[in-house]
Amino acid sequence: MTGAGYLAVDSGGSGLRVVVGAPGRGPLARASSDVPVRTGERGLEPGHVMEQVVPMARALCAEAGLERLEVAAIGAAGMASLGDALRAELPDRLARDLGVRRAALAADAVTAYVGALGSRPGAVIAAGTGLIAIGTDLARWRRADGWGHLLGDCGGGAWIGRAGLEAALRAHDGRDGGSARLLAETEEMFGPVTGLPGQVYPRADRAAVLASFAPRVGACAAEGDPVAAG
């Protein structure tokens, strides 16, 4: 075993990624989960974060030969508007369960910005399951969108997937704006469209389910389907 290391976590709409590393050596081991962090009455649930991160972090430390973790940096989608419980509880829980002495918590857009540009002025677009644009002149921060899959994230994976599924349902109903090609893709992926609401609405990971259809929308667009291209 070789001393202390750091923990880095990226939590997004389709799951989370975990890395451990050591100063001067960089990332040493990584893992991922396709289970997004649950959102409850208090926002993002700290218990669900720890339920996923702790076993992965311990296994990665063993793989990397690290004795302990001293620092943790967590970037989470929704931190700005849904992160009160995370800010209140995660530092203590990281200390208790993993021995972390210092913890930095930020929105995933901020960690994306720092990863791309460091401490320079500029702007980034963080596009995945959701979508947000963020920029700073190092005196003020400005953001656009990042309001989640029900209220915004226009152009993100969930938004594209939902638009494709809507076009499929329009074709099924015989309404304008439908796409027979997207209807066929929907039924190939999810089965009969009459059962689609039951596969989407009860899910806690609805954004990830919607985003899972986005690659098919892209493929249909590339093959010339005008609705998918639109």
Results as ranks from 00 to 15, higher is better:
residue 15 G to V: 00
residue 101 R to T: 12
residue 60 L to G: 08
residue 198 G to I: 09
residue 136 T to R: 14
residue 13 G to V: 02
residue 193 V to A: 11
residue 205 D to Q: 09
residue 212 S to Q: 00
residue 121 P to A: 14
residue 228 A to C: 06
residue 58 R to Q: 15
residue 62 A to R: 15
residue 24 G to Y: 09
residue 128 G to K: 01
residue 173 D to M: 01
residue 109 A to Q: 06
residue 215 P to R: 00
residue 177 G to S: 06
residue 45 E to L: 08
residue 201 Y to N: 02
residue 10 D to S: 08
residue 161 G to T: 05
residue 189 M to P: 04
residue 15 G to L: 05
residue 9 V to C: 07
residue 55 P to N: 11
residue 85 A to K: 01
residue 13 G to F: 00
residue 116 A to H: 13
residue 213 F to C: 04
residue 168 A to L: 12
residue 187 E to Q: 14
residue 8 A to M: 11
residue 48 H to Q: 14
residue 158 A to I: 05
residue 178 G to F: 01
residue 104 A to M: 14
residue 144 A to H: 10
residue 116 A to E: 15
residue 208 A to V: 00
residue 223 E to W: 01
residue 114 V to G: 03
residue 124 V to M: 11
residue 73 A to S: 14
residue 12 G to S: 06
residue 14 S to D: 04
residue 219 A to N: 04
residue 38 R to M: 11
residue 90 L to I: 02
residue 2 T to L: 12
residue 151 L to V: 04
residue 67 E to Y: 08
residue 78 G to D: 06
residue 54 V to P: 14
residue 21 G to V: 10
residue 101 R to E: 14
residue 106 A to N: 07
residue 53 V to G: 11
residue 160 I to K: 06
residue 38 R to P: 08
residue 228 A to M: 05
residue 66 L to M: 12
residue 200 V to L: 15
residue 86 L to K: 07
residue 103 A to F: 10
residue 18 V to Q: 12
residue 135 G to Q: 12
residue 68 R to P: 15
residue 125 I to M: 15
residue 150 L to K: 00
residue 230 G to L: 10
residue 68 R to H: 15
residue 100 V to C: 15
residue 81 S to I: 10
residue 153 D to C: 13
residue 78 G to V: 10
residue 31 A to N: 01
residue 17 R to W: 08
residue 92 D to L: 11
residue 8 A to L: 08
residue 142 R to V: 13
residue 56 M to K: 06
residue 43 G to L: 01
residue 21 G to C: 13
residue 109 A to P: 05
residue 102 R to V: 12
residue 205 D to E: 12
residue 68 R to M: 13
residue 192 P to I: 02
residue 127 A to R: 13
residue 42 R to G: 07
residue 27 P to S: 11
residue 184 A to E: 13
residue 140 R to Y: 10
residue 185 E to P: 03
